[in-house]
Every structure is written in structure tokens, then in C-alpha cells.
Nucleic acid binder design. Structure first.
Length: 194
DNA sequence: TCCGTATTGAACT
DNA sequence: AGTTCAATACGGA
């Protein structure tokens, strides 16, 4: 038996109108089945633009207001399929506590400040942690400590951009957009105790 | 402009 | 060891 085709979930977001298939303005969402549930990846024409944790009651991301149209599997651009394979592989590696490689290109939408924070987050290796203050110093804004927390919370691609590796200065867990259980789980998989 | 925040460190019980 | 508090940068409304 073949696995279920992603077409049941693949949908096209379009800023313009129904039938806009150029993928220049819209984005497409694809599921990733893991042993921790079904994640949903969102792609723009430039790369991976978002990653959502498994929704408890169902795929809430797919119910977004701006979803205009389902996309048959064979209409998914081969480039996005390729990115999606890389995303799925990288996600599963991180969930297994292993370093991820072969990232898809990331299309990060945010302010310059947020993007600089996210860049700093990507430099935290598997199994290591940093504090919000350390991130603030790393980007040359030593006093923007709380703002770093805000940028972490606005991280559109959790897990792959490892915001879970940021703890408070006193080694308390801080917060996590996907819920602290996820943060603890991810850190535990990397052998980090706190 | 005002408000909330995934902070921090010091000064207190 | 827990609590309170001010300083602080940023982003959304």
C-alpha cells in the first residue's frame, strides 16, 4: 500500500486571486509526518517560510483564511518538492537529536532585528545552549535582551531554527512558542539537562 | 504613544 | 531560595 499522497493536504495560499499558480506571491503548505505528529511546512517561491508544530485537534494551519485552492500533487513545483524532502529529513534529524544538514533555502520574513537574531540562533550547535543575553551580545545589541525573547517567539521556523536552545540566564527554561513541553522534549533529545 | 514580552541582575525578604 | 522591581529594546495596535 502506498502512502497517502500529500495532495490531501497540499494547499496554495495566494495573495492575489484563486487560480494564481505562479507561486510568486502565494505559498504552499505540505505535511510532514513524524513520530511526534504531523508538522506542516509552508513554502514561498524563495524557500521554506514557515514550520508549524502538530496541531492537537487537527491541521489548523491548513484552515487559514487565505487558503484559496487545493493543489494536486503533480502541480507542486519540483523545486518545492525538493525543498520539502530536505525539510522533512532535517526535521526528523533534529527530532532524533542528531545534527541536521542539507537545509532547504529559508525565506525568513521579519525585521532586520529579527533576522539577525534568527541568524544567531542558527549558530547554536546541537547539544549547546545560549541565554537570551548571550544572543543579544552576539548580535551587537547587549541591552536588547527582552527583544531577543520577542524575536525568538516570532521565529517562523522552530526546531530547524533552534530557538529551543535558548534558555534564560539562570538556566530556567524561559518560554517556547510551541509550548514548554516541546522545548524540554527537544532539549532532552539533544542530551541537555537543566 | 502605549502596552506586553520566551530577560536580567540586584536588592530585598 | 523565592519575590519584587526597575531598566530596557522592540513590535503591534
Amino acid at each position: 500500500m502506498k502512502s497517502a499522497p500529500p495532495s490531501a493536504f497540499a494547499k496554495l495560499r495566494c495573495d492575489k486571486h484563486v487560480g494564481c499558480c505562479g507561486f510568486k506571491r502565494g505559498s504552499i503548505e505540505l505535511p510532514i509526518a513524524t513520530n511526534a505528529g504531523q508538522f506542516v511546512a509552508r513554502y514561498s517561491a524563495k524557500g521554506l517560510a514557515g514550520l508549524n508544530f502538530p496541531a492537537n485537534g487537527g491541521a489548523d494551519l491548513l484552515a487559514g483564511q487565505d487558503v484559496q485552492q487545493r493543489v494536486p500533487t503533480n502541480k507542486i513545483p519540483t523545486q518545492i518538492s525538493r525543498w520539502h524532502q530536505a525539510t522533512a529529513a532535517a526535521l526528523k534529524q533534529v527530532l532524533a537529536g542528531r545534527p541536521a544538514k542539507n537545509f532547504p533555502p529559508l525565506d525568513l520574513a521579519g525585521t532586520e532585528f529579527q533576522k539577525s537574531v534568527w541568524r544567531a540562533l542558527r549558530k547554536i550547535a546541537r547539544g549547546q545552549t545560549k541565554s537570551y543575553g548571550e544572543i543579544a551580545r552576539a548580535i551587537g545589541r547587549p541591552k536588547a535582551v527582552r527583544a531577543v525573547g520577542g524575536a525568538c517567539g516570532a521565529n517562523p521556523i522552530p526546531v530547524l531554527i533552534p530557538c529551543h536552545r535558548v534558555l534564560a540566564a539562570n538556566k530556567k527554561p524561559g518560554g517556547f512558542s510551541g509550548g514548554l513541553d516541546w522545548k524540554r522534549k527537544l532539549l532532552a533529545r539533544e542530551g541537555i539537562k537543566f
